[in-house]
Design a protein around this nucleic acid. Structure first.
Lengths: 155, 155
DNA sequence: ATGAGTGCAAAGGCTTTGCATTAGG
DNA sequence: CCTAATGCAAAGCCTTTGCACTCAT
């Protein structure tokens, strides 16, 4: 896989299930029907989804099960809890599946969209961040970058 | 003020109160004792503070007043609600006072520290973000960048 | 006096937890 | 069979709101 090509960093859609199954197995967790549905919902979206959204897609799954399964999936490194500005959490498949990307958040309606920036800038940025982190006594794991603005429908 | 120097972008500590008073007046709000205490607490910290932290510093102020005053101050453009990974919100003085900066978050203990990166990278990044935002139909207002890692005490 | 600000307590809303039931290995 | 997963409902926790009182203009 060409590491300089962000798009190809993501796992092919058909392989997501297998990838998730492996990740879950690594932490001794089952890939149950409910978890399959949640992963399918996230896999079919091009942006992080909120719990209400996940619930409406995976009809039949209890709210508490969604929360619990998302926690399991997050612990297994399969999904990530995304911090936006709204009052509810959003979830998306991890970068090992989706590839590295960032989010654009509409400050008016809360809409979220995935975005990618050139690798050259991404690398320069990471290099600078590692330095400032080290200087402050931190060991950097990764960075989080969001674009805040107004989407086309709200403008 | 040299716009290429982030540090000097911030308002001198002694002028914070005056600056805040002006901002509040612009939206028809008073600069009461409670608000003064909150601003002083935020002004004295080099990182965003949580409500519990603010409460412990501004002893005597009711929790509801802190929430309400922070909302007023946020609306006046004096403070900003910072999104980290913890379960509680954090607040800091706005960039017009603190200058543009980012945050380092410890994924182990939740500690937050302010960090700044070179202007050259900041500018390059902004240029790239405006482009990708426009391409996605967004009008960028600003960006949010956090370093996630492990602090010295948790390592 | 007169409306904004404050305290206290209750209500809200997302998230978590307890417990009995069901399903997977 | 036996442990993990699920549903349902109750409990938690941060945050917001209602209401009466106080303060500043």
């Amino acid at each position: 896989m060409a590491s300089h090509d962000h798009i190809s960093d993501s796992v092919a859609a058909d392989d997501v299930a297998h990838h998730v199954a492996t990740k879950l197995a690594e932490v001794g967790q089952r890939f149950t029907a409910g978890r399959r549905d949640i992963v399918a919902a996230l896999s079919g979206a091009d942006r992080p989804l909120s719990i209400p959204e996940i619930l409406s897609i995976t009809k039949g799954l209890a709210q508490s099960s969604v929360y619990r399964n998302l926690a399991v999936l997050e612990n297994a490194g399969v999904v990530i809890r995304v911090i936006t500005t709204d009052e509810w959490a959003r979830y998306e498949l991890s970068e090992s599946i989706m590839g590295h990307h960032h989010h654009m958040v509409c400050s008016a309606c809360g809409a979220v969209a995935d975005v990618r920036i050139p690798d050259s800038i991404e690398h320069e940025l990471d290099a600078a961040l590692v330095l400032v982190a080290k200087r402050a006594g931190f060991t950097m794991a990764h960075h989080r970058l969001d674009v805040v603005g107004v989407c086309s429908t709200c403008r």
